[in-house]
Amino acid sequence: MTESVIQVSGLTKQFDGFTAVDHVSFEVQKGEIFGFLGPNGAGKSTTIRMLCTLSRPTDGTATVAGFDVVKDDSRVRQHIGLVSEKLIMYNDLTARENLRLFGELYDIPKETLQRRIEKLLTFVRMEKWADARIGTFSTGMKQRINVIRALVNQPEILFLDEPTLGLDPQSTVEIRELVRRINIENGTTIILTTHMMVEADLLCNRIGVIDHGKIVAMDTPANLKKIVSGTDTTVLEFEIPNLTPALLTALGSLACIESTTREDDTHVKIRAKGEGCFDAVIDGIRTNGGQVKGVRNLEPTLEDVFLQITGREVREQVSDHVPMADRRGPRHGPRTPSSRVR
């Protein structure tokens, strides 16, 4: 049985004429991990901020945990936790002091809060560092505390805005594991945003692909991939020892080839469509002087899905449509990995 904990209908946010979120509608079921996937500036963070009552929608409605985000904002706040792109922690305070401060703001009784803090610290194996200042922690440790900080009020719904941004590979894996554990062990509904395909694929039960403030596709990762495999597009990886730019250009002009992506010195990923495209591509390579050493039929990835839906790659910035200076997002420009490190 499913029960929806978030209902969003026609949610819109405009900043000085720029529409950051454009009539977005969706529902999230209890216990789900729902991911927003999209390039930087697509409107993911703005959507999250509106759901967290940090930003007022220009239009549309949203209920979180059964409460309206505008009319009942303080009720909504009781039921949610937020891990935003920037660390919500004070460097000069210890881990325990940070947790305590935020716990007090939720009116948790003193003893309950103390017990909960210990439990949370154990949960992320940070007991030993409880009384060290956050400023002395590594980025990965900071993020672990930052995540449990959002759990002090035992929220039904946890929002994570780019939780692995700027983390090293090991910490990234750790945080992803942590998110999964929170979901399974506590039954917490999780909404996360990411611009990383792998992350969305690994963590999410459902994904909303967001681009230019609009949800352009929403389904399970498996179903999303079917969008690509369901079409007559085939993704092939060729190994060509004498791969040249000239060969790539020649291939790009073939009618059956949708796109070519050079992966390294000898490998190229080719998306081709139509029946008999395989023959046509092989012929194309040979007539242009290329040798085919190997070929692999690739499973479509979310990357392909995004490309299929939006016509561009996810790592491209939205800024090719809207000048950067005109984009008045909620106080962040293009992010660099270092924006989390402080």
Partner: peptide, 15 residues
């Protein structure tokens, strides 16, 4: 705190 993003932590709490 606004710049650092920590203000959001207080704003998102029911305070």
């Amino acid at each position: 705190e606004k710049d650092m993003g920590t203000l959001d932590g207080m704003l998102v709490a029911p305070t």
